[in-house]
Design a protein around this nucleic acid. Structure first.
Length: 356
DNA sequence: ATAATTTGACCTGA
DNA sequence: TCAGGTCAAATTAT
């Protein structure tokens, strides 16, 4: 509630202006580079940034244009279901303090009713077989993988890296779609109560990438986040049938904060390194948001997409029990208490389809 | 040495 | 009993 704010057009408009401005700036830089002797890479980089800015600008326009017409959007994958519950987004610093410690145990015994759960369908399409859904801006630690009945690909289980240190009980499951291997269903449970200000570190991301790309498990193609790339390739967001409102109000994109620095170090994966270090490294933060710093979570522009970016489709649902085993715990209560917070970051994705 | 991942065992609800 | 989810020891990466 507190942040009812970003509903507005202003934000949009500002962002739009920022993007266009940025595009112009970059174009100027490019011009300079053309005169001087600069590496082709730098030029390329600038070019990409420019394109990125314009694409974003266009997306923004599209998005705002579609606001009124929910129907205009096309669902990408129609998968999910689930109903919604409250929270949507990850992170809420303010709240965490209330919880820490003890809560765990006590909660266990109590109710842990509904853990806010929502699912994103992230399509990472890669023509070249690159990219992966991984990074959503949070640090996750994989704690399990299971073959699911009837599913071609195994499901991976992740929990917040800061579970123990910050008592953050957010978890997520990643399941590669059977029919469309380029789609990953990411199911999030619980919100982040940790402070991950420093967005993921490169190393972490790398790791994630790796994991998800289990060669053996047919898991997936290597991710690289080229926002740009992703953007171009497919950008769509579908909010599934959830109640529009709910989604609108609750869902939040995980801030994407990180980009990758994928230096070609993923040898293991053996996937093509499309991008040069610089390319990635310099992926314009702008893409993400003007401000990259700590404040991001909130400040991020509405359209922020995950790094993975792109398409996604998501649905939320309440889930009721989440854990079974002994040690597990309590996350439960959070839902409620946090709700208000959720709203904030929530992206005004009222529009049922973000990008078409 | 520390941190993350792998993976089979274990747990729980249906 | 079974499938999904989690634990935790061993392994691997940083």
């Amino acid at each position: 509630m507190e942040f009812a704010m970003e509903s507005g057009l202003n934000l949009e408009q500002n962002t739009l202006i920022n993007e266009l401005t940025q595009g112009m700036e970059l174009a100027k830089q490019l011009r300079t580079h053309l005169n001087q002797s600069s590496s082709p890479e730098n030029r390329e980089l600038l070019l990409q940034k420019i394109l990125s800015s314009y694409e974003k600008a266009l997306l923004i326009l599209k998005w705002s244009g579609s606001m009124g017409n929910p129907q205009s959007l096309a669902p990408v994958t129609g998968l999910q279901e689930s109903s919604v519950s409250g929270d949507g987004s990850p992170q809420s610093e303010d709240f965490d303090r209330g919880f820490k410690d003890h809560q765990e145990q006590s909660d266990i015994s109590k109710k842990r009713k509904t853990l806010p759960t929502w699912t994103d369908h992230v399509r990472v399409c890669s023509e070249n077989g690159i990219e992966g859904p991984m990074d959503d801006g949070y640090s996750w630690r994989k704690y399990g993988q299971k073959d699911i009945l009837g599913a071609k690909y195994p499901r991976s289980y992740y929990r917040c890296t800061y579970r123990s240190t910050q008592n953050c009980w957010a978890t997520k499951q990643v399941q590669r779609s059977d029919d469309d291997p380029t789609v990953f269903e990411m199911t999030y449970k619980g919100k982040h109560t940790c402070n991950q200000n420093h967005h993921t570190s490169p190393s972490q991301e790398k790791q994630q990438l790796k994991q998800n790309n289990n060669p053996n498990n047919h898991q997936q193609p290597p991710p690289e986040n080229h926002l740009l790339f992703n953007l171009r390739t497919n950008l769509r967001v579908n909010t599934e049938e959830l109640n529009n409102k709910e989604v609108a109000s609750n869902f939040t994109f995980p801030h994407s904060a990180s980009f990758k620095w994928m230096n070609g170090e993923n040898q293991n994966l053996g996937f093509p390194t499309l991008v040069n270090d610089h390319t990635l490294g310099s992926y314009s933060p702008s893409f993400i948001s003007p401000a990259t710093s700590e404040t991001n979570y909130y400040s991020v522009p509405p359209f922020q997409m995950n790094n993975f970016g792109m398409v996604f489709h998501h649905s939320e649902s309440d889930i009721i029990s989440a854990n079974t085993s002994a040690t597990n715990s309590p996350i439960g209560d959070l839902d409620f208490s946090i709700d208000p917070a959720d709203l904030d970051r929530n992206f005004p994705f009222n529009t049922p389809g973000f990008f078409n």
